[in-house]
Design a protein around this nucleic acid. Sequence first.
DNA 1: GGGAAACATGGTCATTTGACCACAATTTCA
DNA 2: TGAAATTGTGGTCAAATGACCATGTTTCCC
Lengths: 192, 192
Amino acid sequence: MLTSFQTYLQSHASFTDSELEDICATAIQRTLQRNESLLQEGQVCRHKIFVIKGILRNFATVADGSEHILQFSPENTWTLDVESYDKQTPSQFNIAAVERSEVLLWAKTDFERLLAEIPKLKTLSQELISRNIYSSRQRILSTLSATPEEKYEEFVNTQPGLPARLPLHMIASYLGISLKTLTRIRHAQSHR
Amino acid sequence: MLTSFQTYLQSHASFTDSELEDICATAIQRTLQRNESLLQEGQVCRHKIFVIKGILRNFATVADGSEHILQFSPENTWTLDVESYDKQTPSQFNIAAVERSEVLLWAKTDFERLLAEIPKLKTLSQELISRNIYSSRQRILSTLSATPEEKYEEFVNTQPGLPARLPLHMIASYLGISLKTLTRIRHAQSHR
DNA sequence: GGGAAACATGGTCATTTGACCACAATTTCA
DNA sequence: TGAAATTGTGGTCAAATGACCATGTTTCCC
């Protein structure tokens, strides 16, 4: 169960057995059915989330009811609504499972204790924050500068394996284009 | 000169006189002419930048030569290329003055020493990183979900005073729309 | 296993957007 | 100050995109 998470941790820093034990002992394991929600708009994001298996999606709904996907979180990635988690205020975003998934959760107070007690975890956490910033920049640049076709290409090239596991309408939502446009792009590509 | 920066600092935390002195003593003051560059693509971002007066723009250029503005930095804001600064690798982005500007610069090693010696500065720095993440999320959501008109409205409403100081083509670049579309939006609004 | 839901694709059409061009007004700075 | 560059606006046209609808297929899960 937890072994894949431990492998993940060890690949980033060499934690001692007791540190690993400590981190895992405070984790809550949970299984999510397809489309099951883990955080809904208006709720407070009380946990850090690590995906062991499956894919989560992080999305917002807007006035007309449409969904906009901010992020996909496949195996071995973390997710949460940062702002809601930091400030413990109602979230603007939703987190739900794309497919049947296994996740680990840490309550905020527990995780903060771990961060304080395990410097290597703190370092890892900051590293993840930095990467989040870098990739957000890239994403913004991409939405500003790339054509729909380029966005799709980029997505396929940078998220290996992911596109095949996602329904097209979610990919379209993530890329900010219509399902129709995405279908057209794929059609054009298949004839080359 | 430095007084407006000191006022800024004091508004976020109560630094002692010697801390203020220390922070200011390592700052390099610089004046930038309109359109003068502070960081060019391919260079390493060696400084933290604080804008005392004027506006900087942070942009990327793409294959066809067009510019895409990621961020404007007016008075009392910080800027840099985070990834280039953190890793001291060549930057993908450019930073230049929109109008005649006054900035303060800190070399990375100096700033790191300040962060280590002045916990309140460290706290402020982390707070700014958090806000960066929150606003990046908002920006991504906006590019995904808003119409050009909504994007413009949002920009005008959330950046008071800024639009009036920017040429329209830069606003268009920031919003990811063409100058033509922006002109049309403004035209339509003026007839209501 | 089978009924229901979700999904991928395609057609048509109206709308939006961008590209290209010209021109007048404003601003810049040498 | 005055010439040159920048800026804002508008016209026209073609292309890209989205909305809406229908259909056949696949997937899900009871």
